[in-house]
Simulated assay, not measured.
Amino acid sequence: MARHDARRRPCPCGLGEPYRDCCGRFHEGAAQAPTAELLMRSRFAAFATGDSDYLLRTWDSGSRPATLELDPEQRWTRLEILGSTGGGFLHTEGTVDFRAHYTYRGQEGVLHEHSRFVRDDGRWSYLGPIPG
């Protein structure tokens, strides 16, 4: 499928909007995710579309790896947001509890993570999972 057609498909993040109007605008740098949850959704969409550059750009510099290589055999298929704290327009910290569903070499799997996010200078970034 041509890239133009793919941009009209529903966004992998699960909100039901076309990719270009949803997380695609964040991936392209046309906008910043305004909440921790939207950053989480856009990061899931980046995993689903193979956009490792966006994942690195939105990872807090204190915990970001030097490089990130995504496995092309892993397909991220669905995101469930289970809950969140903070992470809104007036917050500087937030958490998002989620399940990310995937298939890997024909086997279905689920990643469950309670993630931490911080906002600095108006930009949300991913810190990492909450230990425990």
Rank of each mutant, 00 (worst) to 15 (best):
H4K: 04
H4F: 00
H4E: 12
D5V: 12
D5A: 14
D5Q: 09
A6E: 08
R9F: 01
P10D: 11
P10E: 11
C11F: 05
C11L: 03
C13R: 13
C13N: 12
L15Y: 06
L15I: 11
E17V: 14
P18S: 12
Y19K: 09
R20Q: 15
R20I: 15
D21P: 05
D21W: 08
D21N: 13
C22P: 05
C22N: 04
C22L: 03
C23P: 09
G24H: 02
G24K: 03
R25A: 15
F26I: 06
F26D: 08
F26K: 04
F26P: 02
E28N: 14
G29H: 11
G29S: 09
G29I: 14
A30P: 09
A30R: 15
A31H: 05
A31W: 02
A33I: 06
P34C: 02
P34Y: 11
T35E: 03
T35W: 06
E37Y: 07
L38G: 03
L38P: 03
L39H: 01
R41F: 08
R43L: 04
R43I: 01
A45N: 04
F47Q: 05
F47E: 03
A48R: 01
A48I: 05
A48W: 02
T49R: 14
T49P: 04
G50W: 06
G50K: 06
D51K: 02
D53R: 15
D53L: 04
Y54W: 01
Y54V: 00
Y54M: 01
Y54A: 00
L55F: 01
L55G: 07
L56A: 07
R57W: 02
R57S: 14
T58D: 10
W59I: 03
S61M: 10
S61G: 13
G62E: 12
G62A: 12
S63D: 06
A66V: 15
T67I: 07
T67L: 15
T67Y: 10
L68N: 07
L68R: 10
L68G: 10
L68M: 15
L68P: 10
E69G: 02
L70V: 05
L70D: 00
D71C: 07
P72M: 00
P72I: 00
E73K: 09
E73M: 10
E73A: 15
Q74F: 01
Q74E: 13
R75A: 14
R75Y: 08
T77Q: 10
T77E: 10
R78W: 08
L79W: 02
L79D: 04
I81R: 04
L82A: 09
L82G: 03
S84D: 11
S84F: 08
S84E: 14
T85I: 04
T85A: 13
T85S: 13
G87W: 08
G87L: 02
G88V: 07
G88P: 08
G88S: 09
F89K: 13
T92C: 00
E93M: 00
E93R: 07
